[in-house]
Design a binder for these strands. Sequence first.
RNA 1: GCCCGAGUGGCGGAAUUGGUAUACGCGCACGACUUAAAAUCGUGUCUCGUAAGGGAUGUGGGUUCGACCCCCACCUCGGGCACCA
Length: 796
Amino acid sequence: MQNYDHKKIEKKWQGVWEKSKIYEAKTGGKGKPFYGLIEFPYPSGAGLHVGHIRSNTAMDIITRKRRMEGYNVLYPIGWDAFGLPTENYAIKMGIEPAKVTKTNTDIFRKQLKSVGFGFDWSREIDTTNPAYYKWTQWIFLQMHKKGLAYKHKTEINWCEKCKIGLANEEVVAGVCERCGGSVIKKEKEQWMLAITKYADRLDKDLDDVNYLEKIKIQQRNWIGKSEGSEIEFKISSRQGLAEKIKVFTTRADTIFGATYVVLAPEHELVSKLKLQISNWNEVESYIKEVKNKPDIERTAEDKVKTGIELKGVKAINPANGEEVPVWIADYVLATYGAGAIMAVPQHDDRDREFATKFNLPIIDKPLVNAKEITDKVGGKIVTKYKLRDWVFSRQRYWGEPIPIIHCEKCGYVPVPEKDLPVLLPKVKSYTPTDNGESPLAIISKWVNTTCPKCKGKAKRETDTMPNWAGSSWYFLRYADPKNKKEFASKKALKYWMKEGVNWYNGGMEHTTLHLLYSRFWHKFLYDLKLVPTSEPYMKRTSHGMILAEGGVKMSKSLGNTVDPKDIVTLYGADTLRIYEMFIGPFDQSVAWSTESIIGSRRFLDKVWRVAQQLQMSTDKKLQINTDKKSVSISDYNQGQSVNFSIEKLLHKTIKKIEEDIESMSFNTAISSMMILVNEMEKATNVNEKDFKMFLQILAPFAPHITEEIWQNLDGKKSIHLSSWPKYDKNKIIDEKIMIGVQVNGKVRTEISIDKDIGEDEVKNLVLKNKDILVWIEEKEVKRVIYVKGRIVNIVV
RNA sequence: GCCCGAGUGGCGGAAUUGGUAUACGCGCACGACUUAAAAUCGUGUCUCGUAAGGGAUGUGGGUUCGACCCCCACCUCGGGCACCA
């Protein structure tokens, strides 16, 4: 008997699949297209993580099932390779980032291949390849053309340690998301992308896509749509000024309780009112203080309200004509709403805290109708969003150069499309400069150029794009990855992206950034009529994290990481895949347990043993055939009767696997296959037809072992190109079923009944049952409840 | 503080969505095979009780013939947002 030698088998089939190109997707090929996508990995120096395998295996199972169902499957892979870790490594070791990337992607590719994923490697992409980032730059230029990319002098979040401007999204709890260093405000001219212009659609169109509800909720919270009123408070006319303070409120109904008005310290009106403000010196120093306050302090847990009154300035509450004081305070944000509020201490906790601290009046007034009062005071109903425009500049080396040339005469001039890509030049040092410029700024040969418009002297933009750029459209490139004339041909897009990516799985950590950014870019391209759908992804699901043993985060510094390579070597790729799918509910985080992997291996060992038994019995039958010339009918029938329950269980299992894969309940799918194999092993005589159907449903989970057995039995084409088995509806019906019998809701016995038996018959049967009589004699039977096929409950 | 989600054996977790709680797997114990070990196979494994039976799904209440599932209050843990008016 041959042993289950995973090393030999897995290597063999990986080679065969690669040669026969069975996973390569043909644009316009046979069958309905199905596009399954996973987030392309960042090729870090740490190598493939067990978490990658969880997500990849899930989509591998889904796409393999689709292929067997007759779809034309696209399951691509590539590298999201721009980014800080590579650059930091390059700085430290003095190696070119491009070389680091090459080394890392080579490792990743090899590791991914060793797990047997059915990726179409012919479509592999790399965001750092000029042939790819040419199009990232091109899309940026289209945005620039439409006024969506603009340069803006703004206070940016500046990480002192990384020496880099951060997007709001990269500042977590006031510190740098990457290094944990302190973040200060710094004024800088930055390229911005006007994602806020799409805020309404990014919110509304979530109605039309099939995302997990929690993903939709998180996106909606991030976009932060809020409807309210914009109302103007006039500056008291005694001062002879026509200025007005516009406030935004969602609680116009509380306007009679507004006892003061607060402006953000950065509000432009403050300096305009300078002459009226009697305590200007104090006000000015408060503004300075706020500006220099690092984010970490401003958002600290135990933050205390601060502010100062603009003495000499009064505003008029338009609802009742009363004069109220005007303050500035940093609890009012310049970047949201109108940058100013009407404070209603009676109804708002923050206003109350502020009013209490500064002895401002807190009054209780009846509420009015918000809409009517807004109309009456000449305000208007408006919609505001928390979403801000996207800071798109990075003062870093390892990113796509922003394709803009700055000419003293002509201003910011886009690089002509024919000159794309703007190549990233080689530099000696990758370290950002102290004055906040990218390392590119010191290469004068590269920086100094001519203006495409006036041919005069001009300088290149030295900022690069954030690493979110390349991943904002990569799924489109997969449709046509080698195209030199377009980012992808219309034909390929129309074929693969007709309904958008059919199924996209990824991590929850990308819900608010990558997912939102790529939806934005896609909508922009849709508006240019360059992609067929307004939404990039039809369906989005999410996997839970794999934690280290004991439930803590897996990290290099804690030394508790698991190298998939070790598992593949010791137990095999199929075991690793089965284990990661069996480990727990797919959408929840789970703790790794090396001890438990053996169970998955034992399962595959059992599959192998049953296959061996089957082959032996087939061989024996062949012998009988030659000896006796034919197998007697009674032999055959005996086999049938033994297999009768196996057949039924098989068809039930096929149904279950089919449903479980669709709902990503991989753990219960495997559990039911384990039950089936346990029964098959006991049955000793399983027929080949049934066993092959079982192999087919196991194939997406364990592609190597199933291929080996399949081809030993059959010897023809790959199991992965075979047709997904259909379960027989008639074979999954139980003639006799066991139901529980309860007395007052407690289970006392169980009985076997015919499946079609009527309610009265069941009741009769139950009331005569001797195990039940004990419980009901000398008692009055009040009710008998029968739930068909489930349970009987006798109430006494 | 706000918004999601989750609490079930020694452990990872099942439970047809209101109908026989603890499937499947790990671990553990005993047994078979073996000179022995490993592997494999078999049996057992929530808890109290000799048994009949009782008690258990974070805690306390409620609805129901019947609740892990629905409702109310609370506790704990994970994730996201956070002075967003």
